[in-house]
Write a protein that binds this DNA or RNA. Structure first.
Length: 739
DNA sequence: AAAACGCCGGTTTTT
DNA sequence: CCGGCGTTTT
């Protein structure tokens, strides 16, 4: 097939420019994946062995998709190494990690495991988990690793105050505990790979020679270690193509730095830059609004997406009374479009800022019998029962994994209580042996006495499982675990719904294992790895006939005909943290997230918010999101029961912009007939006061009016009483008086 | 040793 | 509002 068929000029150029460093700035919906796969095909066609090409992505889903598409158009495409950063790290480390002092059968700790290790560190160091919160410590350590600062280096650093010194101790002990467990945490998968390649010329040379062509997707999401890894791997041939969009950088909190993309031209001499700015996905209205929002960011490469697509329909905006009302509207809207316009459920996505927001939506979908898929939330592999079974498997694979050992030593109950466990640990420490070795010598531990037979039984159970693992497939092994431990038996005893769900989950887990076992060269190692590295979105299947529910973060890279963004409110989106942070950058990242969400849509967008919302057991009254003001307001139909709330405040809240831009925007804003009334002073004679006035109320005393909304013959007046909070009144009825 | 209770604290996004 | 965790009770 013709590799350039159907491409625009810029796309063709990107496909043909195969030698040397290339930065491909690919806007949302600009046909990026097509260009990438054709480019790979082109490199192969020019005579390169596919084995010498590597493509790096962030999610398994993206990797899988790219692999499939490359295979379709290129001879021997299956030989191209398409991998995520993390699985690439694992693959390199499994082969060479012994060179930096680990065993090749290392475990991968998830963040829960890491936090447990940190808790152990705190106990050992006699530090309080109130002052040194494990979650917080975890993220500090993660930050160090993402800045390539080792525990050793940090320990040497001078001028540390006492808190920093303690943190340094925690970091050091944490690292040594991981080593003792022969485990790596998530950050290590990249960090330790970098350390390995830095310290070992031979290994570096091996991979540098192999990778004649390197391709990195979503480059705007790379952090420092990832950047460094890529730079080292590309060191020999420098045929490095990075693809990204600085406007879609939404993982700053994970250490990703937008500078990697902004500085590419400085990092790589003679780098070619190609911009893909034509969007093939969205309507003109959607694109114009997305552009309008993102133009408020200061730190970005100049580009503007355009499209030949139709103008399209207006956005809809619905402000509900509360989150329940909001959910009902969103679902009714979908139902209506399905019934009246012949849409399918799978053409809809509901996006939100935080996972908890999916709850009301889910309730209402169930009520209305609408099929849906929820991505994210409590992950399958993080359920208690699955983690328990997994702990057995992990322990069988890596007997040094004490976190797993601790998890299941008395699960199901087998009469090994905390007291006994402590004694085992004491013995292990005194004799400088691993906990498992101590278990095998349990008869020697005098203090335990007759309970040692429980331990003996447990130890024998583990050993027989380990033997089994060498003979049978993974699904058989899991069945064996369940059988020998009596795990399901114990659950059956409970006879509760919850226990039954857990049993179902275990059967589902076995099914998944059976699926995996079908792949040739599937081992316990690869199975565990697969599970450690899955993301929610990896399960995304575009062939379902379901409404999709996911966070805006998860939606990156996907597209839907109709998108609903719920919770379009201050303190939710943008998040409370970003709003109250003094780092301007955080807000810009939220704005980029907004840009990502908007550009998922092909045809229509519904934005919703709620006047009052229950949050952490408390009622919140949030204003509509500031991003609302940054949209092109004339392209929005307000379908709320109460129209245009608080529109007065908008003038002062126009986004910060350079002067020319600002004047233009203001003019545009005033021209819009819908907004014309804003510029006449809003005053309601019947009330005798307006927004901003101080009034007096019988019970609460003096307060400032923040909002007036018509409500039938009366007005709903919101008054801020300062420390007493915000209250709502019916203005005339409650006889509010201007002071 | 296991179940039951009650308090405290957190609470964004995730490979 | 939730869940986790430590304390108390059986």
């Amino acid at each position: 097939m013709d590799i350039l068929k159907g491409l625009n000029e810029m796309q063709k150029e990107a496909v043909e420019y195969t030698e040397g460093p290339l930065l491909l700035l690919a806007g949302a919906g600009s046909g990026k994946t097509t260009v990438l796969t054709r480019r790979v095909a082109n490199i192969i066609e020019k005579g390169t062995n596919p084995y010498n090409i590597v493509a790096i992505t962030f999610t398994n889903k993206a990797a899988k998709e790219m692999k499939e598409r490359v295979c379709k158009i290129a001879e021997q495409g299956d030989k191209v190494w398409v991998s995520t950063f993390h699985s690439m790290g694992v693959r390199i480390l499994r082969q060479h990690i012994d060179k930096i002092g680990y065993d090749k059968s290392f475990s991968i700790f998830d963040s829960t495991d890491s936090e447990k290790v940190i808790k152990n560190c705190l106990t050992d160091l006699n530090l309080s988990d109130k002052h040194f919160k494990p979650k917080n410590m975890k993220s500090i350590i993660s930050k160090f690793k993402n800045e390539l600062v080792s525990a050793e280096e940090y320990a040497k650093r001078e001028e540390k105050d006492s808190r920093e010194q303690s943190i340094s101790d925690i970091y050091t002990l944490y690292e040594s505990k991981l080593e003792k467990n022969n485990a790596l945490d998530f950050d290590d998968l990249i960090y330790k790979t970098v350390l390995l390649l830095e310290s070992n010329e031979e290994v570096l040379e091996k991979y540098q020679s192999r990778f004649e062509y390197i391709l990195v997707d979503e480059y705007q999401d790379t952090n420092i270690p990832q950047y460094k890894l890529v730079k080292m791997l590309a060191g020999k041939y420098k045929n490095l193509c990075v693809v990204g969009d600085d406007d879609q950088s939404i993982y700053g909190w994970r250490g990703a730095t937008i500078d990697n993309i902004l500085n590419f031209e400085k990092d790589y001499e003679n780098a070619k830059v190609i911009k893909l700015e034509q969007n093939y996905r969205s309507t003109k209205k959607i694109l114009a609004s997305a552009n309008s929002v993102i133009s408020n960011n200061t730190k970005r490469k100049v580009k503007e997406l355009w499209t030949d697509n139709e103008e399209g329909v207006n956005f809809k905006y619905y402000k509900g009374y509360n989150e329940q009302d909001e959910a009902v509207y969103v679902i009714n809207n979908i139902e209506k479009m399905v019934e009246e316009d012949g849409k399918e459920y799978d053409e809809f996505a509901i996006l939100y800022r935080t996972n908890t927001q999916s709850r009301q939506i889910e309730d209402n979908l169930v009520k209305n019998n609408i099929p849906y898929v929820l991505y994210g939330g409590v992950k399958f592999y993080e359920r208690k029962e699955i983690k328990d079974i997994l702990a057995y498997l992990r322990l069988i694979f890596n007997m040094d994994d004490e976190i797993s050992l601790m998890r299941i030593i008395n699960v199901p109950k087998r009469g090994i209580g905390n007291g006994t466990i402590e004694k085992v640990y004491e013995y292990a420490n005194e004799n400088g042996i691993s906990a498992l070795r101590a278990l095998s010598n349990v008869e020697q531990i005098e203090t335990i006495g007759s309970r040692s037979k429980n331990i003996k039984k447990f130890y024998d159970l583990l050993m027989s499982l380990k033997d089994k693992s060498k003979e049978v497939e993974i699904d058989e092994l899991i069945k064996e675990v369940v059988e020998l431990t009596g795990y399901i038996e114990e659950l059956k005893e409970e006879k509760t719904d919850e226990a039954n769900t857990r049993i179902d989950n275990i059967y589902e887990f076995i099914n998944k294992a059976t699926e995996s076992a079908k792949n040739e060269n599937n081992t316990l190692e690869t199975f565990l790895e697969e599970i450690s590295l899955v993301a929610d979105i990896d399960a995304y299947d575009e062939n379902t006939k379901c409404v999709s529910l996911m966070t805006m973060h998860s939606s990156k890279g996907l597209e839907f005909k109709n998108v609903s963004i719920i919770g379009f409110e201050e303190n939710i989106f943008p998040s409370y943290r970003s709003v109250s942070s003094d780092d301007e950058g955080e807000l810009e990242e939220e704005r980029r997230l907004c840009y990502v969400a908007l550009t998922r849509a092909e045809e229509s967008i519904l934005l919703t918010s709620a006047t009052s919302r229950m949050l952490h057991g408390r009622v919140n009254n949030n204003k509509v999101s500031r991003f609302f003001d940054e949209l092109i307001l004339t392209d929005i139909d307000d379908v709320s029961p109460i129209k245009k709330p608080k529109i007065q405040s908008r003038i002062s809240k126009l986004p910060k912009m350079d002067y020319a831009h600002s004047v233009e925007r203001t003019k545009q804003f005033m021209r819009s007939s819908e907004n014309a009334h804003i510029f006449s002073a809003p005053q309601d004679k019947e009330l005798g006061f307006e927004v901003g006035d101080t009034i007096k109320q019988m019970r609460y005393g003096k307060g400032v009016v923040t909002e007036i909304k018509p409500a039938g013959a009366d007005f709903e007046v919101t008054v801020d009483f300062g420390s007493k909070g915000e209250k709502k009144f019916m203005g005339i009825l409650s006889r509010l008086k201007k002071v």
